[in-house]
Design a protein around this nucleic acid. Structure first.
Length: 728
DNA sequence: GAGCACTGC
């Protein structure tokens, strides 16, 4: 395949970074046990970071500006260093805390560990992290890394985030729902806290004012906040720092009323970008040819290929293996390593293993390698320019997975993966003219989601009118209306769109989508909360069943043992209970030396269950059980009375019902979509029930419903009268 | 008859 050299203007990856202080780059040296040498090494590394030279200036800017935008390129050191600068600059006086949010758990955890090491303190003391299921903080924590979703949860308990003197929102350019909602909230909190500090002085100055109610009104109008006024507590102003990669700094600045933006250089090796001369019809084939071309013509170094999904990865893997046999005798061999999220983690780990001598590693990856996983040793990136994304149609309540072109930001992120350890090359399987046509950044997640959860959370935070809430992205009225309607049908909101009591408040407290919270609350009335806790935990986890292709038959026999005649929900309950039983048995047998982990791992292996998925479900289960207990809901089991459980599913999942059509397909009751039963369902091969509830409605090649249980259609008007009255 | 990208509370 022929590649054109790009025009200089498009080589912007190279421009700023090419002559960077590559000679200053510190390579991880061999193990060093002397703690003094270690400290010295850390100090040296810190000093060599681009951000180190601007410490004073940044501190000044933070002191002078309430909100600061920091544009930091990869490798600038902003995430690890800035909080330390602020700590040393006195921002943690009086026990106040610096909070740094990350979109992902691993990032929060690993960065906190690194910073604790740099500060030479025990993790969880001065420096700590807090993510779901894992809190490493204490009362002495002053620099706290966390996920953005967790800070949102904290805001429900402490609406003014009063412990924090500074909040740093890192990776804001990723625009996750959590980040977007958090930014809106922080804007309000900041306003409220600055008003709170001057409130007293206003009151003082207007002591003579005759109408205190009018004054209160005035203050609240000034706040333009949607938070309830704080009760006499004195709060210090809140500093906000928004950190982003370069493309959209202006958007953040405008959103924060023209906030000042500071640029910090990165430290990345140069990456040469190549485009194709012609349009490639078949990107799998184009990728195959490019891989072979690189292998035969370019120097050593591993390759990373970005593909859209498991299917692409597996078919390209087969194609490469066929072609590799035809390679000339004695040439270097190729080691193909696939990676995508539904692979069990022990298989995912293979990407980190260096290729054996005489092999060149080719990693076939989904988006997981774009941000979530950083693979060392990559010198060549192949980017077809496509990505599979999820979107949501509020009218049909259907999700879809579509393959769309990447954004410019994503293309940059991907090519950057080739320049982490040395100069690299990126081959984009499209023409340079196409790159110019790409959107700057991907559609923010909040535009592609069911808004019910966001709206419920905001209501719980005191935001009554969603359309008044200042988000970076304007939400569609249609999407808002549909979600409000859903929340009313679920009983979270009253007819006049106020949070209902107690159901709405309870639902908002669960870290779950509203429909699952509803199911738990209803289940306590139907005496099947024990089963529903398990069901919800299991439904929230992906890819519970996993088997390599060659063991497919064996696995299916194992899975058959779990299947339940009434459907997938109870099948999942069976899996959960079987695993718990095996754990219990081992304990009774007195195998004390074995940990729960080793017992469960063994059980999972024998039954072709994904251990990390089961582990995740167990974590969710214990967390939501805690919430349920706190709320005083009664946890009881329906025993063998599965009728009760299925009726309970109907009472909560009535928006997700499908009826069988004469031709054997199904039609959703809510929006009359023609849908098929997903191949993973227990009903895929058996006799099809007349009427089902489902967990998920998703469009891929076809419209599919997933996780299905048989119900009686006559139950719907009985158990969801509020819904049926709106259907006529 | 055939299959879901990635996060997060």
């Amino acid at each position: 395949m022929a590649y054109s050299n790009p025009s200089p203007s498009s080589r912007f990856i190279i421009t700023k970074n090419s002559q960077l202080n590559a000679k200053n780059m510190k390579r991880r040296s061999t193990e060093d046990n002397s703690s003094f040498a270690k400290k010295q090494k850390i100090a040296q590394q810190r000093k060599s970071l681009p951000i180190a030279s601007v410490e004073k200036r940044i501190l000044e800017e933070v002191k002078m500006n309430d909100t600061l935008i920091i544009v930091g390129e990869t490798g600038s050191g902003k995430t690890t260093q800035l909080p330390q600068f602020l700590f040393n600059g006195g921002f943690c006086r009086d026990g106040r805390v610096i909070g740094i949010t990350q979109p992902r758990r691993v990032a929060a955890v690993t960065v906190a560990k690194r910073v604790a090491e740099e500060c030479d303190v025990e993790l969880g003391q001065k420096v700590g992290y807090s993510v779901r299921f894992d809190d490493m903080t204490s009362s002495s924590t002053r620099i706290k890394y966390m996920t953005d979703g967790l800070l949102l949860r904290e805001a429900l308990l402490d609406p003014f985030l009063s412990r924090y003197s500074v909040i740093i929102v890192d990776e804001a350019h990723e625009r996750t729902v959590h980040t977007d909602v958090l930014l809106g909230l922080l804007k309000n909190v900041q306003k409220a806290r600055s008003i709170s500090t001057c409130k007293e002085s206003i009151l003082e100055g207007r002591k003579k004012a005759n109408n205190s109610a009018a004054l209160k009104k005035e203050i609240n109008a000034q706040c333009h906040i949607l938070l309830k006024p704080c009760q006499g507590s004195k709060l210090s102003p809140l500093k906000l720092i928004i950190m982003s990669a370069s493309l959209d700094a202006r958007g953040f600045s405008e959103y924060f009323g023209g906030a000042k933006a500071v640029h910090i250089q990165g430290r990345q090796h140069p990456v040469d970008i190549f485009y194709t001369h012609h349009v490639e019809q078949d990107y799998i084939d184009a990728a195959l040819i490019t891989i072979l071309q690189i292998h035969l013509e370019e120097g050593s170094g591993d390759m990373l290929v970005f593909l859209t999904g498991q299917d692409d990865i597996e078919s390209l893997q087969r194609l490469i293996q066929e072609r590799v046999r035809q390679l000339p005798e004695g040439s270097q061999k190729l080691l193909i390593v696939p990676i995508f999220s539904s692979l069990p983690s022990e298989i995912q780990m293979k990407v980190f293993k260096p290729a054996p001598h005489g092999f060149r590693k080719v990693i076939l990856a989904t988006n997981i390698a774009e941000t979530s996983i950083t693979i060392p040793g990559i010198k060549y990136v192949i980017d077809p320019g496509l990505v599979k994304t999820r979107s949501y149609d509020p009218c049909t309540r259907m999700e879809s997975l579509k393959i769309v072109p990447t954004s410019k930001a994503q293309a940059l992120q991907r090519s950057g993966r080739a320049g982490r350890e040395g100069a690299g090359k990126c081959f984009r399987l499209y023409q340079e003219s196409e790159f110019a046509k790409l959107a700057d950044s991907a559609t923010p997640e909040i535009k592609r989601l069911n808004l019910s959860n966001v709206i419920l959370q905001l209501k719980a935070l005191g935001v009554d009118d969603i359309t008044e809430f200042d988000l970076m992205e304007k939400l569609s009225m249609r999407a808002i209306e549909k979600s409000l309607e859903e929340l009313i049908l679920l009983g979270a909101l009253t007819a006049d769109k106020k949070l209902s009591n107690p159901v709405g408040h309870q639902m908002a407290r669960f870290p779950l989508e509203p429909i699952y919270s509803k199911a738990l609350i209803v289940a306590s009335e139907f005496n099947c909360l024990e089963e529903m806790l398990i069901t919800v935990a299991m439904l929230l986890v992906d890819s519970m069943f996993y088997a390599p292709r060659e063991k497919w038959e064996e696995a299916r026999d194992k899975w058959k043992c779990f299947s339940h005649v009434e459907g997938d929900h109870l099948t999942l309950v069976n899996v959960y209970r079987a695993s718990a039983e095996s754990l219990e048995k081992s304990r009774l047998a007195g195998s004390k030396e074995k940990t729960a982990e080793t017992i469960l791992r063994k059980w999972c292996k024998e039954n072709f269950i994904n251990y990390s998925s089961l582990r995740h479900a167990r974590d969710i289960h214990s967390q939501i059980q805690g919430h349920v207990e706190q709320m005083g809901l009664r946890i009881s089991s329906c025993g063998d009375d599965m009728l009760q459980f299925r009726r309970c599913l109907t009472a909560s999942f009535f928006l997700k019902v499908a009826l069988k059509q004469p031709d054997g397909s199904y039609r959703t009751f809510d929006s009359s979509q023609v849908v098929q039963i997903h191949p993973t369902s227990v009903f895929f091969r058996t006799k099809k029930p007349e009427c089902v509830v489902f967990n998920e409605l998703i469009r891929t090649e076809r419209n599919y419903i997933r996780d299905i249980t048989r119900i009686d259609p006559a139950w719907i008007p009985e158990l969801a009268p509020q819904y049926c009255s709106t259907q006529s």
